[in-house]
Amino acid sequence: MAHTLANFDYQRIHVADDVSLNVATAGSGTPIVLLHGFPQTHLMWRHVAADLATDHTVICPDLRGYGDSDKPAETDGSVYAKRTMAADILALAGALGHDRFALAGHDRGALVAFRAGLDHPDKITHLAGLDVLPTLDMWEVLHGVTAAVGFHLYLMAQPPGLPEQMIAAGPDAFFGHFLDSWTDDPAAIPPGVRAAYLEACRGAVPSIVADYRASAGIDIVHDQADRAAGNRLRMPVAVLQQDWGAALGFDAAALWASWAADLQHHTVTCGHFMAEEAPDEVARALRELLGR
């Protein structure tokens, strides 16, 4: 990709049998891993990562299936399970010498972080999620015509074949729709970065669809098992969200509180891509979390 994080070092790290992740690292101090969302790459963290790297070790990978990381073919429905993707991040941090670390994710990356926190509570010191609900709650709050805002969730939940063909027929129109409609500040994603996101997505249609399809299948099974067992996030948790509840009729803070006893929930006024639209606010919230 043409765009990289300034003053960060890049490498590829093997995390699973058939997967290596592209990762950018910088700074020193207590480690924090930053996971990107859809339809983006690790570049979305460029402002926040630079801020945090002044006194933390900052690790910014492309998730499996995205950016310059490997994109294994889906086989049995588990290749893009958030449990599998979370295991990637544990392996990545371990390879970099970090047995315990803070973890922050946006959108899809926040779902990976959520699963890592539930599966590996001894490894994740602090957890932050940006503008997402846990998978199980997300499906439960979507209903009626208001669910149209999540049309892509339903499209990519379909069996293999049709979604991939439809999206591949016009990838720039499909992925560009979200980059344009989900931001309140178009200047926050400048043309060069937007072009890099679209280029990355063009080459990742099957894996992106598989990631979303997993969230309509195996990810729900895993969340349901944790809910039934009463499992909750044990570490301090911070969530930053738009006011989805006002639009769709639910209490986002209450939904998150059911999963996290030590929760700070913040409502933001920017658009979905908050790490790019309001990086100072995001960096402050992460620093506040890390201080707990």
Rank of each mutant, 00 (worst) to 15 (best):
P160A: 12
F101R: 01
Y66P: 01
Y80T: 05
M156Q: 15
F151N: 12
I208S: 05
D76R: 01
W256D: 10
D243F: 03
A95V: 09
A173K: 05
L103A: 04
A225M: 08
G109E: 08
R194S: 13
D131W: 04
A24C: 07
G203W: 07
L179H: 08
A188H: 03
H272K: 04
S258A: 15
L248M: 15
S207I: 01
D184T: 13
P206C: 01
D226E: 11
Q165M: 05
L290S: 03
L34K: 08
A173T: 12
D223G: 13
R46H: 15
L103I: 12
D70A: 11
A261V: 04
A278I: 00
L255I: 02
Y212C: 07
H266A: 03
H42L: 15
V145P: 13
P61C: 06
R83L: 10
H14A: 14
H272R: 01
S28G: 07
H177C: 07
V193E: 14
P121T: 10
M166S: 03
A252M: 08
C270A: 14
I124R: 02
A6W: 00
A225Y: 10
V19H: 03
M1T: 10
D70W: 02
D172S: 04
H120R: 07
H36F: 07
S181K: 12
D70L: 04
P61H: 02
P134D: 09
L5G: 09
A253Y: 11
